[in-house]
């Protein structure tokens, strides 16, 4: 099981703050995205955006980053703090 969180603009557009992804047998973020899009086809366009940032267990990651059961994955837009 993987915990997936969404933030800011992305959270509002998807209408989802977080979800638990079960029965995922892939190994990386790209495969997780495909898995989620199969369950939520209406999210596909949003998931293909180039500027979408990714974190795994609170560290910045990318499409090739490895993930295992129990990881926390977050997707969010470019940051605008400070």
């Amino acid at each position: 099981m993987i915990k997936v969180c969404f933030f800011a603009d992305l959270r509002e557009r998807l209408g989802c703050a977080d979800m638990l992804v079960e029965h995922f047998s892939g190994e990386n973020i790209a495969q997780l995205k495909d898995f989620i899009v199969k369950q939520h086809p209406q999210w596909e366009k949003i998931f293909l955006e180039k500027k979408l940032l990714i974190a795994v267990n609170h560290a910045m990651a990318n499409n090739n980053s490895a993930i295992v059961a129990g990881d926390e994955v977050a997707f969010f837009p470019p940051v605008t703090g400070g």
């Binding site: 603009d9 974190a55 969010f76 940051v79 605008t80 703090g81 400070g82």
Partner: peptide
């Protein structure tokens, strides 16, 4: 610290 915070710390303004 400030320049790097602006582009890497996960904050968002609305």
């Amino acid at each position: 610290i400030m320049d790097t915070l602006k582009t890497s710390a996960p904050f968002w303004k609305k």
